[in-house]
Design a protein around this nucleic acid. Structure first.
Lengths: 309, 309
DNA sequence: GCACTGCATCGTCAAATACGCTGCAAGCCG
DNA sequence: CGGCTTGCAGCGTATTTGACGATGCAGTGC
């Protein structure tokens, strides 16, 4: 660019006031500074912008008058861009780039987002669902600002704020022979056919539960889709391990399922907010995190059964 | 403005290439320079634009991605303004701000402007007519770039390039008693009723002709409008002095007039181009002046009778 | 484990920008 | 008509900005 914003500002001020001196006063600058800036601008553009009058200021040339109009719209555009940029981080507005673990998304995001937008109507939410590895990649790649997920396999550059613990449950069909039990042990389950939610990192978590109990599951079917798992269970293909327990006991095909707590010491999943360390977060993200803190608590997560249910 | 064009350019280059190093290479700059510029931009806007990856470049944050789009349109706008500015003086295009003496305008400007625009179709002409004082004020005030006029009362800051001499003639009705004379003296005319074109500076010129001849005109009527003078003459109210002689011998009401050369030493009017001294003229103005030089010569002025006619 | 990559930081230096002072030319006024 | 005022341009100088090479440092990848 052959000119600077400063030069344009001085030029506009001088052009509108018809005086270098008045322009300098209005721009909190000195007369020689404005004079030199305008002279330099004229040289850079190769255009005579002003007619100088001795002892009585300046007049715009025809070219100066036309350039003045263009310069003003350019400066207005620039200050709009500046305003836009500050709005990006200083106001609860614009777009919230939210990511959520696929297994959690259909349960927690509907009410969470609805209530957030009710208090902050100027925010629109762009929601992406993925498995844990995908979420971390999105955070690292700057594609999402914050992720609602479990504290699984979190590398050092990711910060995590836990909000609620979700202990694992066995998911069985309502007419399963274990369905009426108060609780069930992993040893008992190991004899049943296992339906595995086969997603990166969640897979490793499920396997670690069995490993700590010293038994090995009998994996019958794998699927990447939580709803498929649930429907398979409802149809009596076997049992699954789940941490997120929907309020509904019905699978997509109308079959019924029930959840049973696991007996013994089982590490719960920790639901919380993940984001990239060392990033100056926008006010929109701050507001969303705050909203999550009040909406998601150890005694209740939106869309899920509460711990005692 | 909290940011500079340079900062935006570096930011856009880094955002599009995903690398400070590549951005620096593409911007003919060094890596630390670009790095510092981006850091400063982020601080100024209060927005985190990039996620830094160790040993593998940068990713834009969601906010950075949105700001990138705005920055690019602003830079495009700026380069359009820059292009517009250079076009103002470097190309024969845009608007020619032309001023012309009111008595000359209807004679010379139609063909002059028509032919000029035929060779330079991208130029539009803004023509203003005024008396000599008005023309000088327009030039000084930067309202017009060049004036077609006489070399009357020209102050030092006005340059004048003469193109043709126009000796004064007596204008009388076709049925006037002097109408058939080959030439006429100011002494003879002084006895007739004089119809004065009463405009600043042209008035003084006419009076000076009589003063130098040692006689005093008998002023019967004054008018500021050349066509009124001409029609008054055609109706036998008296005679007038004119330098610009239209090709037509008819006044607006259909009456006929004739022009007679003046006897003795009379100072002619000098028709030419006036502009403000010390102004860098645009290529459009240069082209117009050049066109005038070829179209207006001592042996002929467009729209006027030639010297021998 | 070790070389490599790539951004950030440091110190230095040149250029741009700022300012006060002064000069100059023309208008203004008694 | 001379002296005063006005207002822009130029000069010299100080400060800030921007540029660069060298270096540091953290993480990748063979």
């Amino acid at each position: 660019m052959v000119f600077s914003f400063r030069q344009l500002e001085y030029f506009v001020a001088a052009g509108e006031s018809g005086s270098v001196t008045r322009a300098a006063a209005g721009s909190h600058s000195s007369q020689p500074t404005v004079s030199a800036a305008i002279a330099k601008l004229e040289r850079a553009l190769g255009v005579q912008l002003f007619v100088r009058h001795h002892a009585q200021g300046l007049s715009l040339t025809p070219e100066g008058r036309r350039f003045l109009a263009e310069a003003k719209t350019l400066l207005r555009h620039a200050s709009e861009v500046e305003r836009f940029a500050t709005t990006l981080s200083d106001e609860v507005a614009g777009t919230l780039d939210l990511a959520c673990l696929v297994t959690l998304a259909p349960l927690v995001t509907p009410s969470l987002v609805r209530e957030f937008r009710a208090t902050h109507p100027r925010v629109s939410v762009e929601l992406v669902e993925s498995h844990q590895q995908g979420l971390l990649d999105r955070l690292r790649g700057g594609l999402s600002s914050v992720a609602l997920t479990y504290d699984l396999q979190l590398p050092g550059e990711i910060t995590f704020e836990p909000l609620a613990d979700l202990p694992p449950h066995a998911l069985v069909a309502a007419d399963h022979r274990l369905a009426l039990r108060k609780r069930v042990s992993l040893e008992e389950l190991a004899r049943e056919p296992h339906i595995l939610l086969d997603l990166p990192t969640s897979r490793e978590y499920f396997m670690s539960l069995f490993a700590e109990a010293g038994v090995e599951p009998n994996i019958a079917i794998r699927s990447e889709h939580p709803e498929t798992i649930r429907t398979l269970v409802a149809n009596g293909f076997g049992y699954a391990i789940v941490n997120a327990r929907p309020r509904s006991d019905t699978a997509l095909d109308g079959g019924r399922v029930v959840t049973l707590p696991l007996r013994g010491p089982v590490r719960p999943m920790r639901l919380g907010l993940a984001s990239l360390r060392g990033i100056r977060e926008t006010r929109t993200v701050t507001a969303f995190k705050e909203h999550c803190r009040s909406a998601i608590t150890p005694s209740g997560v939106p869309g899920m059964l509460s711990p005692e249910e």
